[in-house]
Amino acid sequence: MNAARKLACVVLLAVCAVSLAADWLAPSGYAKQFREVPSSPPSRQHLLGTDEIGRDRFARVLYGTRISLVLAPAAALVSTLLAALVGGLAGYLGGIWLRIATSFTDLFLSLPWLFLLIAVRALLPLNVSPLSSVLITFFILGLLGWAASARVLSASADSLRNSDFVLQAQASGLHGPRLFFVHVLPNLKPILYAQFWISIPVFILSEANLGILGLGVAEPLPSWGSLLRELEGLVSFREEPWRLVPLVLLIVVLTSFQLVLSNNEEVTA
């Protein structure tokens, strides 16, 4: 374990611990509005200042981290597994299956998502508690995010299918799911990892965009997505550097995750 990885572990643990301890660490709830001091700079009461309607930014970052840090990877996991199943299996089976899966994936990618999401919103009830809204949001992201990864995976699985070791395994009498899960899937792992890590920031940001369709994390619950969306109107980073905290946090956490996991990969591969 090298120094960078150790540091990354420490950072991740610290971020997790702090966000889990939000109930004790946060000076106030994420929804409490300090209406006398909206958009205020950092102070002793509000370590990161307050947002446009006077909510404590520090508390919102803590709670937002808790939500995004759990749910974005969960959604990425769902989408990566779906991609592995659809893309990996199709590539491995080859022939007609690969063609069917490729056209299905292409169709899925070319669907007018905006309209489908609007339809999804129309099907869901309006009175959804903020917490359920979070789960729905990330579930939708997970379900929708698989197609691009599946494409990459089916190409790799296709080349694995023709590899010597798969032939060798078949000659040893292996077949069916066993052959796929033992011999094909582990070799897709590096690609799966890559797809997984690419998905997380994409999902965090998509969550913010889903808010436009009434599907995102509902107010007053914070998320990294909604915190990042607040940066849109930022005039000058120099004047309000504390507002960059969510962005910095996102970068730090993702980098740490990657450091920790890339090392694992080297050992197992």
């Binding site: 209406r35 609007i118 309006l126 808010g211 436009i212 009434g214 509902a218 107010e219 007053p220």
Partner: peptide, 27 residues
């Protein structure tokens, strides 16, 4: 949207639970 969130808290004070939903204009 911000007004809705402020009213969410205002109405919360008299025990009313408000859910804020933002939609695209045509919907």
């Amino acid at each position: 949207e911000r007004m809705a969130v402020l009213m969410q808290e205002d109405l919360g004070k008299i025990g009313i639970k408000v859910n804020v939903v933002t939609l695209d204009f045509p919907s």
